[in-house]
């Protein structure tokens, strides 16, 4: 690692001020950033640790909306249970030690194309709350490791409208413990939403053909005959684009069958 300083602010305002400096970078749980720094793929002069910011901790449920602080760990979301499909998703991220440090804000800011939380946020129609604004999930995920966040912008919370039914199915890539393909299905008041992670070179995305079919008839059979094009899907040593396209349909069916 190159050398850097670490600041540990206590408030969002202090953190935002510290991140105003061009060469500063936010540090969440460090489960992605620290390996990146070790590879010298990033060279910030200052890391601003967000885990001590009290405003970014805590989970509250209010009128059907679950609000999770940006620095809440995967373990705490797993233990919450008020949005069952989301807690189950969190309980299957990485391993216990990763879940004790990694945060929801860090996962959404990173937007790894194989990460789990982006699928939950997009399928649930969540709102990403930052220190300056609120961003709808549909506008937030821009592409591979790319989001609508500006330089130095901090995810302070994520608001999830709790769906009527939901489920996440992750086909595990056992070496990385990320999703080879993951599908999150949510039945909301405005219809069914289906978000796919792990599959596309563009990162997390919605599968609208499946959404239409499932909004008309919420059963795994409604997906019979629907398939995903392998064009633009990720192809690597873990699976070809065609294999991933096949998995998207299989995982979607499983998620529909398991939704509760």
């Amino acid at each position: 690692m190159y050398a850097f300083d670490i600041e540990r602010p206590a408030t969002v305002a202090e953190a935002a001020a510290a991140l105003g400096n061009e060469d500063a970078q936010a540090l969440g749980g460090g489960q992605t950033l620290i390996p990146t720094l070790k590879q010298r793929l990033a060279s910030p002069e200052k890391l601003v640790s967000l885990t001590g910011v009290a405003e970014m901790q805590g989970i509250t449920s209010n009128g059907g909306t679950l609000t999770i602080g940006g620095a809440v760990t995967h373990a705490d979301v797993a233990g919450d249970g008020s949005y069952k499909a989301l807690s189950e998703l969190a309980s299957n991220i990485g391993d216990p030690a990763v879940r004790n440090r990694g945060t929801i804000g860090g996962s959404l800011a990173n937007n790894d194309p194989s990460a789990c939380y982006p699928a939950a946020a997009l399928a649930s129609g969540a709102t990403i709350v930052t220190n300056t604004r609120e961003i709808a999930a549909d506008d937030y995920f821009v592409g591979l490791f790319e989001t609508a966040l500006d330089e130095g912008e901090i995810i302070t919370a994520v608001k999830f409208p709790i769906p009527q039914k939901a489920n996440y199915q992750k086909f595990l890539q056992p070496a990385s413990r990320f999703a080879l393909v993951g599908v999150f299905v949510a039945v909301t008041a405005d219809g069914v939403r289906v978000a796919v992670t792990g599959a596309s070179n563009e990162g997390v995305h919605r599968w609208t053909a499946a959404e239409d079919a499932l909004s008309a008839n919420f059963s795994a059979d409604a997906l019979d005959g629907l398939s995903v094009s392998a064009d633009d899907l990720i192809a690597d040593l873990h699976g070809s684009a065609e294999y991933r396209a096949h998995l998207v349909a299989v995982m979607t069916k499983r998620a529909v069958a398991a939704a509760s």
Binding site: I6, I34, P35, L47, A75, A97, N100, R101
Partner: peptide
């Protein structure tokens, strides 16, 4: 809490 001490400052 169990953490990986190689991935924490």
């Amino acid at each position: 809490k169990a953490v990986k001490s190689c991935t924490m400052f």
